[in-house]
Design a protein around this nucleic acid. Structure first.
Lengths: 340, 340
DNA sequence: TTGTACGCGTTATCAT
DNA sequence: ATGATAACGCGTACAA
């Protein structure tokens, strides 16, 4: 079956391409009769417009691009879900690219998306991203850009995120109120903003409640950011601090679950001997025993909002309105379960 | 910053568009001097070719489309990861669409992808897909199509899948050899091929080992295909069969974990009183207590192979070679842990 | 060695 | 009510 174009339809009906095109777009100056003729043949021949041609002509690709560090991550998966739903509703397609936490890749992917002529771009920065020329390039091309989750303070574009510092503060305050005093923190790397912010929230909460901040209780736990990291770091923690520690606050649920596994393997009772508190509310967290206390981060909502914002900016741009960058901070909530 | 086209470059250098274009493509009939001039300006102005124009001209979009039922699924996530890696390697972009297990959506998404002019399409069918005209349409447009995981026997295109029947057969045979005799099966819906095949493998294994097949031990467990289904169905199973049952084989790990949770909540020992066997080797399965026995399905590999196959067919088509549909069946393996 | 001219499929303005 | 025509940006056969 040959691919059907307006031209074929026009020939078949002895009409001009222009007329067919207008008939399909329901222009008022085309007769009912012709419109019906065209519509019927279009259905019969299964005509599907060529979006590249439309794109070239209209300067709209009806496509947005997304760059995320890692798709195999429950949290990102929920975000993407939100993005897809919102985009789909407005008739946009989504190109997804994975930076694998590699800065060079992230840069290349930006170029690819620009070359594709996407109408807008959503980015969650890789942990290794430490300069932002590629984001500037996006803005220089006046392509709407929205950062989500892993954002940078340096770039002046719309952002959708949570208040990591506050969330961490709330966790640690909760633990302190519950009577825990020696609270360890398994943090992420030194660069990512959310790793920094969660750490700062942790520290601030301690100080605000007159508990000395002990740097030796803070572990960087980002080898692979997986469950084994949590397992191994717990091992190290207990070796270095014995049972003086009475709680662990981890930067992700996966790491918390690694910690729980270690504690369970070594018959250390949770939360009696040590409490564990995670971050993200990975749905698995409610299923394990003991169920994990954690922070609900509303990934789907983050994706939906980011998509909405982007689509708004795209629309604004097309209308020639200059939309100001917005910063949306979504609320988080403590989810208290059995591990704390 | 205005968007840069070949035209701008040409004007700036007082050359024709054709010369600039050829210089960039390293045509032998362009002088070194001109090439250097062009390249330098291209870098300075940050020229990025417009892919829609290229697409229109070359009939290649360097883009493939993927339709999957549900992205928030560890298994699919790993598949997508494989797809992205392979596509990226060959310079292809990936448009991901989610059917949400809705047949109507799946059909619409096929149209969208065709209209986008993707060079090829990968589909994992929704559970509710019961006719295949939309897939036929893809093939009629002579767009390469590869089905993966959830495939249909009716359509004659390339497929990448596992042998569900054999995998299930292996599981049940293993359980029988271990001494389990009253083995329940929590299956999926009646339509999806892999649900059917796993069930058939289960049944065949029983019969081959002289264990009567008892239909009352088979539960359809697909309300949401989540952990709660497993929890509730286990409840129902025990209510109806008491402790005569000594093993449960579930269609997915998530459901198995729901079952484990129920058993743990009710102090029923696993595997002493009841063994549990899952399917997929979701990475969480190794972390819970007791660690879940399951079937490794190699999702990443499925994605990689499917992508490879598709890219091959695309290449073949462009060379005018007619590539025969291939069927790749990837090996599965039993992963024996503590729950069986 | 460089440039001219055409076409990919569509939209939209302006004639007829 | 319909059609001729130009334009979007690029690639390439052919002419100069």
């Amino acid at each position: 079956m040959k691919v059907v174009t307006l031209k074929q339809i026009a020939q078949e009906l002895n009409l001009s391409i222009a007329t067919v095109s207008k008939a399909l777009k329901d222009y008022p100056d085309i007769s009912k009769k012709t419109k019906k003729l065209v519509h019927d043949l279009v259905i019969k021949l299964n005509y599907i417009p060529n979006s590249s041609a439309v794109h070239l002509r209209t300067q709209q690709s009806k496509t947005i691009g997304v760059i995320i560090p890692d798709i195999v991550h429950y949290f990102f998966t929920t975000v993407i879900n939100g993005i897809l739903d919102e985009a789909e509703k407005k008739g946009y397609l989504v190109i997804i690219m994975q930076s694998n936490e590699i800065f060079e890749l992230e840069k290349k992917q930006v170029d690819l998306l620009i070359s594709k002529g996407v109408d807008g771009i959503l980015v969650s920065l890789s942990n290794k991203t430490n300069n932002f020329l590629h984001l500037k390039k996006i803005m220089n091309h006046s392509i709407p850009l929205v950062l989500f989750d892993k954002v940078s303070k340096v770039i002046n574009c719309s952002k959708v995120m949570i208040d990591d510092r506050k969330a961490a503060y709330d966790v640690v305050t909760y633990l302190i109120k519950k009577g825990y005093k020696r609270i360890a923190h398994f943090r992420g790397g030194l660069d990512p903003q959310n790793s920094i912010d969660r750490f700062l929230g942790y520290k601030r909460a301690l100080l605000d409640h007159n508990i000395a901040f002990d740097p030796s209780l803070v572990y960087i736990c980002n080898k692979n950011s997986d469950f084994k990291d949590g397992y191994d770091t717990t091992n190290q923690l207990l070796k270095e601090h014995g049972d003086s520690v009475d709680a662990i606050f981890t930067i992700t649920d996966v790491i918390a679950i690694g910690a729980l596994k270690y504690l369970s393997d070594h018959k250390i009772k949770v939360p009696e001997s040590i409490a564990v508190f995670g971050f993200s509310n990975w749905f698995m967290s409610s299923v394990i025993t003991p169920a994990l206390s954690t922070v609900e981060q509303h990934g789907y909502e983050i994706g939906r909002k980011a998509s909405q914002l982007l689509l708004q900016e795209i629309k604004g741009k097309q209308k020639g309105i200059n939309v100001k960058p917005q910063k949306i901070i979504l609320q988080t909530e403590l989810v208290i379960r059995d591990s704390s």
